[in-house]
């Protein structure tokens, strides 16, 4: 798979800080993949996200997005139109008083033709399932709905990559589910590359790849099944694994033979049931 975002030995220290927030990160994000990034507070996961669309540029090393160096100020719009960013607080990223005007903001900034903007806005709102509420005032929407509007606002820019920096941190469980299923669909159906920064383990289960950040380093990188199977690493990082991973791990430790890991609840149940049936017969 061709990499769309490449980190090469990236170091970054926030002005006024003594500790480095990123200390030598090497990373490649492949096209059309769904990558989840986990880590506790201060692990550098948000700093990592902010490097992906040139909000921050590395002190040392290099970040390239589709071949464009993010440190190249001349081409900053090239980077930002390719990498859409969704932030934590839905209230602070909605700029207009009407949903559809907000979604139109990015294409307007890019100087897209009015008729084309209309088409993109309608399409984006339908993709996130907010088309019916297009004339609403954003402050009257629920948190999950606001966050979906923010995602639509990014899709209307027609980016190749969408980076979500803890989009679910301020939402209730229902809002979280709405947002996660929307981004999963974007990746699976539209082939968009998705980078989801989060601290909810269960949101990582559907990802192709899971990266654990710790003190500015990449502590683990692999499929969610493989990463969650390493319980000692997860404990060291102060992260609790999803309940399904814990259950499978304990069963295996007790001597049960489980072929491969399935972390969604139904899959996990199926496997355990299959094992019981096999041992009975």
């Amino acid at each position: 798979m061709e990499p769309v975002i490449v980190f090469e030995n990236v170091h970054y220290t926030y002005p006024g800080d003594e500790l480095e927030s990123l200390c030598g990160v090497d990373l490649q994000i492949e096209k059309s993949s769904f990558v989840a990034v986990l880590g506790h507070n201060g692990s550098g996961k948000s700093t990592l996200a902010k490097h992906m669309n040139a909000i921050l540029v590395p002190d040392e090393g290099r970040v390239t997005v589709c071949g464009v160096d993010t440190a190249d100020e001349e081409r900053i719009l090239d980077v930002r139109r390719r990498v859409g960013m969704v932030f934590q607080n839905p209230d602070n990223q909605i700029v207009a008083n009407v949903v559809e005007d907000d979604v139109a903001f990015a294409p307007e900034n890019l100087g897209v033709e009015p008729a084309q903007i209309r088409r993109r806005v309608d399409e984006a709102l339908k993709t996130v399932g907010m088309y019916e509420l297009r004339m609403h005032a954003p402050h009257l929407l629920s948190g999950g709905q606001k966050q979906r509007v923010a995602i639509a606002g990014v899709i209307a820019m027609e980016p190749e990559i969408i980076v979500l920096d803890e989009p679910t941190a301020m939402l209730d469980p229902q809002g979280r589910a709405e947002v996660v299923s929307t981004v999963t669909r974007l990746c699976r159906e539209k082939g968009m590359t998705v980078v989801l920064i989060t601290h909810h383990m269960d949101e990582c289960i559907g990802a192709d790849r899971l990266i654990i950040m710790s003190n500015g380093h990449v502590a683990a990188d692999g499929s969610p099944e493989a990463v969650f199977a390493d319980l000692s690493l997860m404990e060291r990082e102060g992260l609790t694994v999803p309940e399904t991973a814990r259950l499978l791990h304990d069963l295996r430790a007790a001597g049960m033979e489980l072929p491969d890991e399935r972390l969604d609840i139904d899959g996990c149940a199926d496997e355990i049931a299959a094992q019981f049936l096999a041992s009975e017969s």
Partner: peptide
């Protein structure tokens, strides 16, 4: 930051 991310210039 959010506005800049959406290419406001």
């Amino acid at each position: 930051v959010a506005m800049e991310s959406r290419c406001y210039h």
